[in-house]
């Protein structure tokens, strides 16, 4: 067991702050290490509801339900979960729901696990095929502006937006350590 205190990079606080300021109330997620800090902050915030899913497609349906009930939702997941959502994405287009997802990428940069490759390579196309606009962030200094732009496009413009957080932004997964 590592005793290292993990200090989250500032861009992860930027994500939380944009979601918070943007009035996001519900955050369905399937965990990823790259989202871990944001998830912790959401659970610590009494005005936000983090909801862990068994599979990512649940989050799509829940986010649409949140909007029906009058709240904004943002979904957190990793690229491997995008394939699990494909049919459920129909809900977004059929009903023109606003939609915002933040997706940590795997299988594209210094990836150790080859099983992440196929879905990582198909992530962007899968979302675009289902009518979702994809934005990508690869530099820490671009995170705040891009997430903010995506949030406004979703909830002011009524669009469906996925923001891909590049694996190079998140950094190498340390396979030799336990957490």
């Amino acid at each position: 067991m590592s005793n290292t205190v993990i200090t989250a990079p500032a861009w992860q606080d930027d994500i939380f702050n944009v979601l918070k300021r943007g009035g996001i109330k519900q955050v369905p997620y399937v965990p990823d290490a790259g989202h871990a800090h944001v998830i912790r902050r959401i659970h610590a915030d009494p005005d936000m509801r983090g909801v862990v899913m068994t599979t990512e497609e649940e989050g799509v349906a829940m986010a649409c339900g949140a909007w029906l009930g009058g709240q904004r939702a943002a979904m957190l997941m990793q690229s491997s979960g995008v394939g699990n959502c494909v049919n459920m994405f129909s809900l977004i287009e059929n009903c023109r729901f606003p939609f915002l997802a933040l997706i940590t990428m795997r299988g594209e940069w210094a990836e150790f696990n080859p099983w992440q490759g196929p879905m990582g390579r198909a992530t962007q196309q899968s979302m675009e095929m289902m009518g979702i606009t994809v934005l990508r962030v690869s530099k820490p200094e671009e995170v705040l502006e891009t997430v903010s732009a995506g949030l406004d496009a979703a909830f002011e413009g009524g669009e469906a937006i996925a923001i891909l957080l590049s694996q190079s932004l998140i950094g190498r997964k340390k396979w030799g350590e336990t957490k």
Partner: peptide, 17 residues
């Protein structure tokens, strides 16, 4: 459509309302 999504969609509504 959205087969399998009814209950969890309702969860989003229930939290909001």
């Amino acid at each position: 459509g959205a087969m399998g999504g009814a209950a969890v969609m309702a969860l989003g509504i229930a939290i909001a309302q």
